[in-house]
Nucleic acid binder design. Sequence first.
RNA 1: GCCGGUCUAGCUCAGCUGGUAGAGCGUCUGAUUUGUAAUCAGGGGGUCGGGGGUUCGAGUCCCUCGACCGGCACCA
Length: 648
Amino acid sequence: MAQISLTFPDGNSRDFPAGVTPAEVAEGISTSLRKKAISARVNGAHWDLQWPIGTDARIAIHTLADDAPALELIRHDCAHIMARAVQEIWPDVKVTIGPVIENGFYYDFDREEPFTPEDLGRIEKKMREIINARDPVRTEVWERDRAIRHYEDSGEPYKVELIEAIPGDEPLRMYWHGGWQDLCRGPHFQHTGQVPADAFKLMNVAGAYWRGDSDRAMLQRIYGVAFKTKADLKAHLSMLEEAAKRDHRKLGREMNLFHMQEEAPGQIFWHPDGWTIYTELQNYMRRKQRAGGYVEVNTPQVVDRKLWEASGHWDKYQEHMFIVEVDEEHAREKSINALKPMNCPCHVQVYNQGLKSYRELPLRMAEFGSCNRYEPSGALHGIMRVRGFTQDDAHIFCTEEQIEAECARFIEFLSSVYRDLGFEEFEIMFATRPEKRVGSEESWDHVENALENAIKKTGHDYTLDPGEGAFYGPKLDFKLTDAIGRVWQCGTFQVDPNLPERLGAVYIGEDGAKHRPYMLHRACLGSFERFIGILIENWAGKLPFWLAPRQVVVASIVSEADEYVAEVVAALTKAGVRAEADTRNEKINYKVREHSVGKVPVILAIGRKEVEDRTVTLRRLGEKQTQVVSLESVTADLAAEAVAPDLR
RNA sequence: GCCGGUCUAGCUCAGCUGGUAGAGCGUCUGAUUUGUAAUCAGGGGGUCGGGGGUUCGAGUCCCUCGACCGGCACCA
């Protein structure tokens, strides 16, 4: 029999007969390794212990101690065990696919009846039975025709379609345990008992389109999470609880920041405190942009369809625009307008007023642009995904040569904004030319290089996202990480030669001839609405002092203190601090609790002693201890603290 | 938009198989002058998301519309 040579991670090689399995390799090393082994890595591929190895290869044996492969197996096996449990309970349910996802897995089923939350408990119970049975897992490679015939005979049309989509040169693997069979690329455990019975949980049922295509069948997807240990599962569940506590919709109501109602779906009624955050953030961005060399403009909300036709948006996004028809008696003809869904075409109109010289470029034009988009009802989500929103939008008109410097400048700008707002970490995604595109290859080369060099110049890492750019140019997306590790895509930087072309933007070059400028679309926050939602969740409502809508409550302990309380509030207000009095006839305990729940960062308590000594007793949100300070020093300190980070 | 779920007082939620609505907190009134996460007592408050139907009778059953929630699809 032919021999192959396997190289281990330590660099040593050994010869084995061709077709040896990782299980046999592990056995050859030691019995204990054979017992601990769960899978292998063979030439970089995650390899089932049962799969034969046919050629020379690098090999590493994985045990449960190897997190990534262990979790992949646990989650993937869990998905399969769930599918088997479902088919054992309801034999007529059709199975489709069940991949591993972050923290767990899902499996999509086709079934007439909807799954109920009670069903999930039943499925979980059956899954535990399967795990406890420790059924051995067996695998085989099948011929295509045989596999297709098998699934046609057993009435599993989705599996047939899956097989037909698998490239001809890939092996079709079948897996079995306990008489249940599934097509699967593997790898899997050796027996069902290797899945920890107490470290998984089925979470919820949701609809999902077959193959992600909204024109095809709606399946039922069951989501589950799975970990190595019960403790890991518990930690995950408490993280979810923590996220639920931070939910901006809950905090928005509790802190009385905003509300939404049926009559204006996807639009926000900002209450005084919410609007304070909004204006504070907007003032900050306005100062930042001014300092960053932007000019600010403002453009119309209702714009004739002609402009949207010219920009190309009418064709592509008409469905998602709010259309306004004006049909006045005096109007010569009915005019059809759209609420602006974006600002760029209007900015080109501003640019086009007066002939521009190359000396004026780069021209950085910013607008806090209020936009309206008719988002599909199912897409709406709190204040994060809405139909009426305001972008921190800007367009930089520049020459091709200026793109690199403008890009680098923007990355620096954005990092400084994120840092000021409490986000230290962000990731850059670099999306390059797609299949379908316009423009010359030279131009793509040049622009992509410009972006890449700009990123490198700023010293940031980036992740390549090949083929994901717009049809006219590459883009950068900026994703920030919040306090509990969630990732939000907020910033963007997009190179666009197309819109200036369509809307006839030009500048006069050094040579006296007309040239086409590039347009760079860019935003840091994305939309104020969404970003405030992110801020609320990131800080769990406990916003940094300068952004906190109610910065200080001055609370009386006895009514004799009322006059002095008013004096303290006045002093703080004059010093630029948002302060209010609480002289209600309540105990200090009650007031402290109420304002703590309301996330007020500082409570100043005033009793007889404070009145006498002209001091205050200061207590910070979340802290038990208090400190007695003079009126003068507390005013100065809090005034300093209230200054926005860009003004410090 | 699609699948599933939900909608009862300002908020959080009870209300079994249909028999004309309840609690806690908040609000209001009174008492209490209080020292760092809820003082006590009393009062008011809902055409049960909108509309239609079945029924002697509907918060409860059916139809329909809407909003919201979890996903999917979408996100210029």
